[in-house]
Amino acid sequence: MPSFRPHPTPTPCCCLLQVELLAPAVTGTANVLRACSEAKVRRVVVVSSLSAVMVNPAWPQSQAMDEACWSDVELCRSTQNWYCLSKTLAELEAFDHAKSTGLDVVSLCPSLVIGPLLQSTLNASSSVIADCLKGDREVKLKLRNFVDVRDVADALLLVYEAPEASGRYICDAHARQVSDVVELLRSWYPACKNASSKFVQVSDEPFFSSKKLEALGWKFRPFEETLRDSVESFREAGVLD
């Protein structure tokens, strides 16, 4: 596992981003874990992200990324991939804290989380699907990895309660081309006149393995169920109008 090393001489731009994104992610994680240690919490499950896994060009392209793969911190810095950097540093901080204090820390790294909304507004993940139907934004065509929010909730309970759970767990259910998702939505909702026609082709996301989580007993819904429940939830919330 890579060690957490703060950037030694940040530029003014980097300083601003650290204040807005990096510092809260790392410091916030440290503060919560410190409080958990003081309260003698049995186990802490840290919700990380595949963003802390996927930025690693050294990983063999023919091999699905697993829990041993970490995003390259210095590459994230040099490419100004601040979101992936923040997730990676926060997760590293969590395991550094676990090593130094003995706190039982397990992390879960979900892919793009979609599914029924609890709130009345779209979050960033759900917007990936909503944008395919609304037609007012450019849609990135690439292979994406999806997981249902309900299946993520099941995974969180599983890694918290299973005595044998340890380390990291990738939580990814479905790899789908966005172009196939668009076609599926059009077949279900032919009356949707605003379906997107603004497309841009970008690089695919890598493949991931959730075998470690599945070995604990994790199961996930079919993609079609997740996608349909997502859209029906958007319609009920009125966010597609």
Rank of each mutant, 00 (worst) to 15 (best):
S3C: 11
H7T: 11
T9W: 11
T11V: 11
C14H: 11
L16I: 12
Q18Y: 13
V19G: 05
E20Y: 13
E20N: 15
L22W: 10
V32L: 14
C36L: 07
E38I: 12
V41M: 10
V41Y: 07
V46G: 02
V46P: 00
V53D: 00
A58G: 04
P60E: 03
P60Q: 07
E67W: 06
A68T: 12
W70T: 05
V73F: 04
R77T: 03
S78V: 08
T79Y: 06
C84Q: 08
C84N: 08
S86L: 09
K87M: 10
L92H: 06
L92Q: 15
L92T: 06
G102D: 13
V105C: 09
V106Y: 01
L108R: 01
L108Y: 04
C109W: 01
V113N: 09
I114N: 01
G115Y: 04
P116D: 06
L117D: 09
L117E: 08
L122M: 08
V128S: 07
I129H: 00
I129K: 01
D131S: 15
D131M: 10
C132T: 03
K134R: 14
E138T: 15
K140W: 05
L141P: 00
L143V: 05
R144Q: 11
V147S: 05
D151L: 04
A153P: 02
L156P: 02
L158D: 10
S166Y: 05
A173P: 02
H174S: 07
Q177M: 13
D180A: 14
V181Y: 03
V182A: 03
V182S: 00
V182E: 00
Y189W: 13
P190D: 05
N194G: 13
N194C: 07
A195P: 00
S197D: 10
S197F: 01
F199K: 00
F199W: 08
K212A: 09
L213R: 06
E214Q: 14
W218I: 01
K219M: 08
E224P: 01
S230F: 07
S233Q: 12
R235C: 04
